[in-house]
Simulated assay, not measured.
Amino acid sequence: MADAPPASGSQFRRVLLKISGEALMGDQGYGLHPPTVERIANEVKKVHDLGVEICMVIGGGNIFRGLQGSAQGMERTTADYMGMLATVMNALAMQAALEALGVFTRTISAIPMDQVCEPYIRRRAVRHLEKKRVCIFAAGTGNPYFTTDTAATLRANEMKCEAIFKGTQVDGVYDSDPKTNPDAKFFSRISYDEVLTRNLRVMDASAIALARENSLPIIVFSLNAPGGLAGVVQGEGKFTTVSTLASDQKGAA
């Protein structure tokens, strides 16, 4: 990665945004909700306009989830490949929304499908980021038995990102579900080991371990707060940082 200073107003030069497929379905129970996709694309554009190089990984659970298919009797490998294809559909939808906003975007798939997107070649993807194009990494790692959380951590390390931003339905990491427990305690900072020990499900265990091995911070924030992503990238708003440092527990807001 180039040694240029961080983008204006941001402490980061290059980041990866990880969101679930469910984040794209809005209030629907399934599929894509175009206004929601457009809203998230606008959030990404705001970060891009700061001069931050940004890449994305989007899950596929709004269309098909491999584990659920496997639980219903489908062979696990086949189910996981179907889930990977769902992530490609979501990536193409996000690419279309970003390009409608004037943001040059590349969908890059771990499973070659040259007619619809680029194959994953690390050096080419790095070059896209250097040229200020948004890269959306699709099809997970290209292998069954690995989640998109693990794929996001892998790609963030390969792209030399300085942090993973995990967009969720809540504004950080709590010791229990704040939607059902009003006394849930909020962590402004927590260690990888504590996330694993407490089984807090920030990301799956493989992703947390990979981030820990490479000292890659994971920043958990609410995807629903307007302007939230750009604010968090600039160190503003409410969020949790998962890193090697000890936890800093605060009372729930």
Rank of each mutant, 00 (worst) to 15 (best):
E158N: 06
A2Q: 13
I219M: 06
Q28I: 03
A100W: 05
L101Y: 02
I164Q: 02
D80H: 08
N224L: 15
L24I: 04
A100F: 02
Q115H: 13
A41H: 02
M25L: 12
A7G: 13
K179A: 13
M94L: 14
N224R: 15
L32C: 06
S247P: 03
S206V: 10
A151G: 00
V37C: 10
Y120G: 05
N224I: 11
K46C: 10
V170I: 14
D193G: 04
V233D: 06
M94F: 11
G102W: 04
I136Y: 06
V134D: 01
R198H: 02
P182V: 11
H128I: 03
T78Q: 14
Y81I: 09
R198E: 05
G231P: 10
A93E: 04
T180K: 14
L50T: 14
F104Y: 08
A246T: 07
P144H: 00
V170R: 05
R76V: 08
E43N: 13
I190L: 09
D3N: 15
R124N: 12
C135D: 07
G9V: 10
I40A: 00
V232Y: 01
I19V: 10
A71I: 03
T77S: 15
R201C: 15
L16P: 00
K18P: 03
T107H: 07
S8G: 06
M1G: 15
M84Y: 08
A225H: 13
G83M: 01
S222A: 10
R39E: 12
L129D: 00
A110T: 05
D49L: 05
F165N: 11
K45S: 11
R122I: 10
P5G: 08
Y192E: 05
Q72S: 12
R189A: 11
I58C: 08
P119I: 01
R106L: 03
G251I: 09
R155K: 13
L229A: 05
E236P: 01
S20E: 02
Q234Y: 11
I40T: 04
A110N: 09
G59C: 09
V220Q: 02
A7W: 07
G61R: 00
F165A: 10
A225N: 12
V37L: 09
V202C: 07
K131S: 15
A156E: 05
K238P: 09
G227T: 12
E75K: 11
R127T: 12
T244H: 15
T107Q: 09
C135A: 13
Q28R: 15
V232W: 01
C55N: 02
I63S: 04
I219R: 02
A246P: 04
V134W: 02
G142E: 13
E53C: 11
G31T: 08
P6N: 00
T168I: 04
H48A: 08
I190N: 02
A207P: 00
R198I: 00
R124C: 11
A125C: 13
P112S: 10
D204K: 14
T153E: 07
R212D: 10
P6K: 01
G66C: 01
T36F: 03
A110F: 07
Q72M: 15
A100L: 07
E53R: 12
R76P: 08
K132M: 14
M113W: 12
M84C: 10
D175W: 10
M159C: 08
N199E: 15
A110V: 09
T168C: 01
L223Y: 06
R13P: 03
P178G: 07
I111M: 09
